[in-house]
Structures are given as structure tokens and as C-alpha cells.
Amino acid sequence: MPERVIGGFRKIGHRTIDGVWRMGVSTRFFLLTLMHSGICLRRPQLVIREIFSAGVLSLIIIIVSGLFVGMVLGLQGYETLQTYGSEEALGILVALSLVRELGPVVAALLFASRAGSAITAEIGLMKATEQIAAMEMMAVDPIARVVAPRFWGAVISMPLLAALFSAMGIFGGYLVGVVMIGVDDGAFWSQMQSAVDFREDILNGVIKSVVFGVAVTVVALFEGYDAPPTAEGVSRATTRTVVTSSLAILALDFVLTALMFRGV
């Protein structure tokens, strides 16, 4: 029995040390990426290519999801607001929900699943097929040539995708609330215009999406670069990217929301 207890403690200890070690290594990896980012200014076409991979190829899922989330918000919001006779405030509800929370958070979750997993799988497979090693043998630093352009491409894409998600969501809310249900067109837009503040709401939403973009991309890049060079290793790394970055998004969202909107 004591053997089993000691074994359990030992396992917890190992996992803790491993977790702290991974955090340290990933932080060093992040700093190295920033230090090697000069190439992105010298050769912007490398970043533009990654904006296409991470951003443009994520457009469909972002647009469709944004539209449906906005439509659901329109329906649910109308149901609630009409109880209090405030259905004209539907525009405010839809816009604030999207710009402050759902836009950055849901877009980041979708981004982690679509682009984050793709980044991890691509880099993991490059490692497994010795492409990373070949690059090092050709005296080309893979952190500068492979990692940094993907980092900046994804970080630039994320706020743009979040903005597009919010815009599509508002359009979805408009379709349901105004076109289908018949909420007053003028009230919908004018109340939204007066209630949504650029700095408090939009800018804070943009800051959130940038932070989420950095978190998702660092996790995705590190997991890919650290993946064991086997099929199973790449598969596990891809799964870890989605799980870790999703949890990071939700945790960071709480912290940022507390700081931004409650003045903590």
C-alpha cells in the first residue's frame, strides 16, 4: 500500500516537473521566435503566404459560423427582450455579445481547430520527414524560416477573422431580428451605434483576439516543433494543440474580461 502511494506521488511529481519544463521550453521557443522575426520584415512574402494558409483558408468556417451564431443570438435575444418590451435593443445585444465576447472567443476556438491543428501537423510532418533537419544542414535556421513567418501570419490573421466573425454575426442577427421577425430597422442599427463604444468594446475585442492569436499560434508551433517524429507523435501533438489552446483561450478570456470590463 505505501508503495502504491509513493508511486502515485512520484507520478504527480514527474508530471509537475514535465509540465514546468514544457512551459519553460515553450517560453524560450516563443522568445526565440520573436528574436528571429527580422526575416518577416526583410521578406514579407513569407508572411503573406502564411496569412493565406492560416487566414484565407479559414474564411469559410469563420463566415458560416459567424452567420449562424448571429442568427441564434437574434432568435434567443428577441425571445428574452420581448418579455420586457425592449425588442428594439436587439441590435445592442447582438453587437455587444459578438464584439466583446463571442467574436474573439469563438473565432479563436475555430482558428485553433482549423489553422492551429494544420500548423502543428505541417511542422510535425516536416520534422518526421527530416525537412527541418535538412534545412539546418543547409545552414538555414528553421526558427527564422519556418516558425517566425507562420507565427506572424497567424497573429495577423486572427483579429481580422474575429472582426469578420463579428460582422457576419451582426448580419445574421439582422437577418433574423429585422428581416424575419420584423424588429424596427432604424432602432436596430441606431441603438447599436449609440451603445457600442469604440475603445471599450471594439478595441478591447481586438486586443482579446490578438492575445488569443498569440496563444493559439505559440501552442501550435511549439507542439509541432516538439512532436516526436512519428505518425503517432504528430497525431498526439495535433490533439494537444486543439485541447491546450482551447483551454488557454477560455482561461485568458476570463482574465482579460476581468481586467477590461470590471476594472480589476
Binding site: 527530416e130 525537412q131 533537419a133 535538412a134 543547409m138
Partner: peptide, 11 residues
């Protein structure tokens, strides 16, 4: 120059 076992070409 290095030639890897399976080429390691950039895919």
C-alpha cells in the same frame, strides 16, 4: 551538402 536517406525534399 547533405543527402538524407529519403531525400528530405520540401514537400
Amino acid at each position: 551538402g547533405v543527402l538524407f536517406q529519403f531525400g528530405a525534399l520540401f514537400t
